[in-house]
């Protein structure tokens, strides 16, 4: 263990020395290097840490975390990190095990595992499997970000006050987001509140806003998609007279297109409600590239699509 530790330290050292050169010139404090897997985590943690930290998100816009393959740069980034945040609950597929290994050498936090188990959603067909898409429940998200903030404070005790106050500000914004979203979602008729997407990413979203959610594929995009799954969804669309389905920014729209065409044959006009950000967010620098912007976009898209038909 010692040898590996030494190796990692040497590696990190190398990075620090080369990085320190610039830092010394400007004579400012070097920000804490934070690595996050998804950009949802990355953005939220950045809001809390502010200028004291520098966040790198491994998975950019349009990237599907379930099937993500790490590249060499990612490995370098992970090695140079002071702290690593990941979602856990098998969202990142096989990367989970690796983070457990890295946790021996540096602080690593799985946001999903910071939440008490009874608050998590389980796969009804497979009780052993937990829904990893926790960021869609704003309350749970706050809870896990709280844990993340504590980890940051542990590493930067001198900045405790600043971090905690930034956290409070951000949490207030999140509370407003929750209220606004709730108002908007409630404006949809209860009967119409059905969200059909390519994979089961919106379970927590559905629980939060009392909305029924149906995913063609299971909790992971790795799950097999059978003919029966498509047909069951179409039957439900027809039976419940649901007018819109949604595609996701990180998944091929092929399966949803098949549902739309199939429903049309059954005499039910189903429209594409728009594109939702499920497992990935928008481009960095855009509104949809932030957690709050992404959330607002989703709510607006869903409300627009589901309300239109109610008229």
């Amino acid at each position: 263990m010692k040898k590996l530790l030494l190796a990692v330290m040497l590696f990190v050292f190398g990075g620090i020395i080369s990085g320190c050169a610039d830092a010394n010139e400007t004579d400012s404090k070097k920000p804490l290097q934070v690595v996050a897997t998804t950009s949802q985590i990355g953005d939220s943690v950045q809001q809390i840490g502010g200028e004291n930290i520098e966040v790198t998100s491994l998975m950019g816009p349009g990237v599907d975390p379930h099937t993500y393959q790490a590249t060499q740069n990612d490995i370098q980034t992970l090695q140079n990190a002071d702290i690593v945040f990941y979602n856990g609950l098998h969202l990142e597929g096989k990367m989970d095990e690796i983070f457990e290994q890295i946790s021996a050498t540096k602080p690593v936090l799985a946001l999903g595992e910071a939440i008490p188990e009874e608050k998590l959603l389980k796969d009804p067909d497979n009780p052993g499997v937990v829904d990893p898409h926790i960021w869609f429940d704003i309350n749970l998200w706050k809870e896990s970000l709280d844990k993340a903030a504590n980890e940051l404070v542990k590493l930067m005790p001198e900045d405790e006050e600043e971090i905690l106050s930034q956290k409070e500000t951000y949490f207030t914004e999140l509370d407003t987001l929750l209220e606004e979203s709730n108002d908007q979602m409630e404006s949809i008729d209860q009967q119409q509140r059905v969200l059909v997407t390519a994979h089961d990413a919106f379970g927590y979203f559905g629980r939060l806003f009392d909305t029924e959610v149906i995913g063609l594929q299971g909790l992971s995009t790795e799950d097999e998609l059978g003919i029966r799954d498509i047909q069951d969804t179409i039957d439900l669309l027809v039976e419940r007279n649901i007018p819109s389905v949604f595609i996701e920014s990180s998944i091929s729209d092929r399966s949803i297109q098949a549902v739309i065409q199939g429903s049309e044959e059954s005499g039910q006009k189903v429209e594409l409600g728009g594109e939702l950000y499920s497992d990935a967010m928008g481009k960095e620098g855009t509104v949809e590239g932030t957690y709050i912007g992404m959330y607002k976009h989703n709510v607006k898209t869903i409300v627009d699509a589901l309300k239109k038909e109610a008229e």
């Binding site: 099937t67 393959q69 790490a70 590249t71 096989k94 299971g218 799950d223």
Partner: peptide, 18 residues
Amino acid sequence: VGNVHLDVNHALMGEISF
């Protein structure tokens, strides 16, 4: 096997980086 993380993808591509 169900949802256990034994995916075909991993088996075919491997992941030497980890």
